[in-house]
Design a protein around this nucleic acid. Sequence first.
DNA 1: AGCACGCCGACT
DNA 2: GTCGGCGTGCTC
Length: 828
Amino acid sequence: MLEFAEAKYTDRTTLFVEVILPLAIAINYTYRVPLELNDQVAIGKRVVVQFGKSKLYTAIIARITDRAPEKYEAKYIIELLDDVPVVNREQLQFWTWMADYYLCNIGEVMNAALPSALKLASETKITLNKEFEFDRSELNDREYLIVDALDLQPELTVSDIAKLLGQKTVMPILKQLFEKNIIIISEEVSDRYKPRRKTYISINPVYHNSAQLQELFEILERRAPKQADAVLAYMKLSRQQKAVLKSELIEASGAGAAAIKGLIDKEIFFAEERTVSRLREGDEELEANFELSPAQQVALGEIKTQFEQKDVVLLHGVTSSGKTQLYIKQIEEMVNSGRQVLYLLPEIALTTHIVERLRKYFGAAIGVYHSRFNDNERVEVWQKVLNGQYRVVLGARSSIFLPFDDLGLIVVDEEHETSYKQFDPAPRYNARDAAIYMGNMYNSKVLLGSATPSFESYYNAKGGKYGFVELMERYGGVQLPATDVVSITEETKKKTIQSHFTSVLMQDIGNALTAKEQVILFQNRRGYAPVMVCRTCAYTPKCVNCDVSLTYHKSSGRLHCHYCGYREESPAVCPACGSTQLEYKGFGTEKIEDELQLLLPDSKIARMDLDTTRSKNAFQNILNELEEKRIDVLVGTQMVAKGLDFDGVTVIGIINADSLLKYPDFRANERAFQMLAQVSGRAGRRGKQGKVVIQTYDPGNRVLKQVIENDYIDLYNTEMPERKSYKYPPFYRLININIKHKEAEVLHNQAEYLAKELRQHFGDRVIGPEYPMVGRIRNYFIKSILLKFEKDGVSLPKVRATLREVILNYNTTKLSKGSIVQPDVDPY
DNA sequence: AGCACGCCGACT
DNA sequence: GTCGGCGTGCTC
């Protein structure tokens, strides 16, 4: 076999190419190269091929050979699309690794990697780019025909256009039209990324003149006193601060939105929308030409020293310690040495704001890549990385697929974030782990950063596999919130607890509300009550699929399964014994909201959980309301913990920390630590110390203590105390025996459930947290695997081989969604 | 991923 | 007797 790059063919040699098709197919297919394309075919270029009866696909050349396939006649390549390869060798290696590691087909990786505009297929939709003006007289006949047809019918497929033109080779024409920005190659109906915008108010410069202003006042006071108030408030605010927010003005003047709108309509005020950051640490942190604090300088020095020995360094820096500045220093250094940098951020943290900041340092050499960018934009970034215009790329997880050729550094910010993990279509990769493989492949350094590192990274760092640097001092002297741990047991004894709220918490809520500040209450359970029990016979309604108790939702009056979505009417009498004595046990966000409203009838209480944020903009709407201070108390699940910043929130209450701490598995402890640290980090901002109230039945809990002391769990040595409810051993044994996570990765919770079933054969040699899942799929796997065991016996390598086989042979698209996944301890 | 083929239940 | 459910296999 010959590789094209190494061989020179005469014109007569018939060449064949093995191509990657963007489909879930196990192997690459071979096509015949027309003689005239002999000198042009190259690995990484795109070709159009027919696959199956009538379908055309864009495929990528993975291999070139001069040997004809023996068992079949290869079809010809229809077209060659590129002059220069769009995918380089490193990427192909990366794809191969990913397909192998995450147990999927390379075509699926290709699908995830390439922007869809680079892989048009015969069913791909073509539309006109409405935002782009162009001169039709410059179009050639065929182009004109296409544009004309799109005027009549706004959406055509590639095969429609082939019919229209009466020819098969339409891709080059479409490619040209795409490059001229005339058409859009779609699937682009998805939501575009919207930066957060705020409205700023300024006054018409005419009124900078005090005589004019005086006159205005006189008119307004007579005709529209509310508007006069607003102008007065504006004058006052604008003296204190550079820019005046509309929301601030409404609050300060008490004039209401209508009055301000009136003023805008009369052109007395001007309104301007500006993009603002969603990041917690932004404004004060990334000033141009910042100086590193002594602690930061030490950390930076350590990072450099560690990089001499290790390829991966974990930077553990507390919130607001200024990790970003360290990244910038590292990035600058790498860019100066001429190599490329990839800066990975979790989805939520990607804002135009941070890009603007980074542009100050890196100018036009910085690109942004984001799954919610439209395809034209994505292709543009792809091309600019390919031709070397971008030296730094800032992006979400999918940016690991960009065509880097000389990557020197990968920064993975907030390394513990679960949004690095792709769940839904294969490849179900974790961008952090994939970045480490990439780092290895490109011989580049990887800097992982987090305030609450994931266990596996911490483990790898402590075990010496990664370098480890700590930065435990806050930058700019931001104050830590004060934390109170309140014993629920004690308050119950003293009868000072009202419903689920201790006197300490009520006191702090009261103080905050009096001071017109806001409160967030955290309760890690949605619904009204997680269990319904019959008092007479102890019957509990369970999900028919998942065998977990159903949660009562007051808003729907029904019982819900939180794993599979199954619902049923809440029974009025016990289905088992007919008793009417049915009791709700435990409490969720709905109940907290309800009962707090009874205690604070005049306050505006809102709830944020999966149930209230299901509709499209609900999440954002709640955040906006909170920001505009239309909510006094927000009750929420873990959603409230995610990196958003609210100046008005000074009190955080954790209703029951035990619901986070009591679980016997290590993964839950990790989540608990992160959750508590993140939630409590929300309290208090600029100049005002926050307050965190943690309610618990177990004030001596170890994890809790470590959160309060900001002492990261030494997970390596953490052994869970014995409890009779423990079914499975603690985490460290998982590392030893693990049904190697590679296999499990693909199946998510399915594999975890499997682990539970496998325990029946292997006892506690098989470890993994259990998460119930939908019956049909479970049964499929359990059945196939157990049947194999009967035949083959039960040695561990066999289990692994079996798992692999079953997983690969099952069409994973048919699986229902997973809930939780365990990242790999060893991503190599 | 599509698409054809094929084997069992409920229908004009 | 046929329509149509989706399980299985194949596509260079």
